[in-house]
Computed example of a mutant assay.
Amino acid sequence: MSDIVDQINDIHREVGSRQVAGEQASTLVTRRTYDAAIEDVWDACTDPERIRRWFLPVTGDLKLGGRYQLEGNAGGEILRCEPPELLKVSWLFGENPGFSEVEVRLTPEGDERTVFELEHVAVVPPEMGDFGPGAVGVGWDLTLLGLGLYLSGSPIDPRDGAAWQSSDEAREFMTRSSEAWGAAFAASGAPADVVAVAVSATTAFYVPERPDTEGA
């Protein structure tokens, strides 16, 4: 197993639900510890020049109450900003995105280690129901991986992200990530058949069969 794939085991995952504005929302929590000071992790997550090096280019009025937009991805409003410990944003796609918020919490563990915790709360549209938490969970695992590699000085250039995601290493990482989110889904009380469908759908989405293997 490569060092990158092995990092699946460094991530803690939780799945749940709660009421938000009268609707039932799904909750996802992912947690990982980095060998970096809290100020460095905070800066990597909030400085637009550093964000583009491990995640995506970001534009907007990057301050409390301002709006941001990730290139080709989510956008929204900066709801809370309490450096170097807490960042909360709305996380929206499309013209009628519904409710979706992401909160990042950082906790120092000594001088040179930081616990990074991310919670994503969203009202899931019916068409996404079969995917379960892995629909966004795999994406967040990739994000935590990218941040970890960047902080360690061995980043994957985001410009090469599409090429890397088709590699055997990335496909193994995403497959194991989908299975890990399935395990977290099961631990939340989801029935085994629902979990199986979710893992299958999520894995097929992130790790489609290659053209040369279809029908084999």
Rank of each mutant, 00 (worst) to 15 (best):
S188H: 15
E179C: 05
G76C: 02
E109F: 12
R171V: 04
A74M: 05
P83F: 01
V195N: 12
F99L: 11
G134A: 02
S167K: 10
W42F: 15
V124I: 14
W42T: 06
V121F: 10
T114A: 13
D193W: 07
A162S: 08
V15N: 09
P133N: 06
A37I: 00
E49Y: 12
V195D: 05
A74E: 05
W91S: 00
I51W: 09
Q19W: 00
G148N: 05
L147K: 14
S2F: 02
T27W: 07
N73I: 00
L62E: 06
I156H: 14
F99P: 01
E101S: 07
G132W: 01
E103Q: 11
T114F: 10
V138H: 08
S17Q: 15
L64V: 00
Y68K: 05
G134M: 00
E119W: 04
G16E: 10
P57N: 09
E119H: 07
E103Y: 08
P83M: 02
A204L: 06
D43V: 00
F173V: 08
W42G: 11
S177T: 10
R159P: 01
D168M: 00
A187D: 14
G16N: 01
G65T: 04
R18C: 10
L142N: 07
F93C: 00
G110N: 09
T59V: 11
R176H: 13
G65E: 14
L70S: 05
I11T: 06
V195T: 07
R18K: 14
R210W: 00
R52P: 03
V121W: 13
D160R: 09
G134R: 08
V199Y: 11
S17G: 10
L87M: 15
E95M: 01
A186F: 07
N73K: 06
A74C: 02
V136W: 03
A135M: 07
I156F: 14
G137N: 05
W54C: 07
G66L: 03
D6Y: 06
G215I: 02
P208L: 07
V20E: 12
F116G: 13
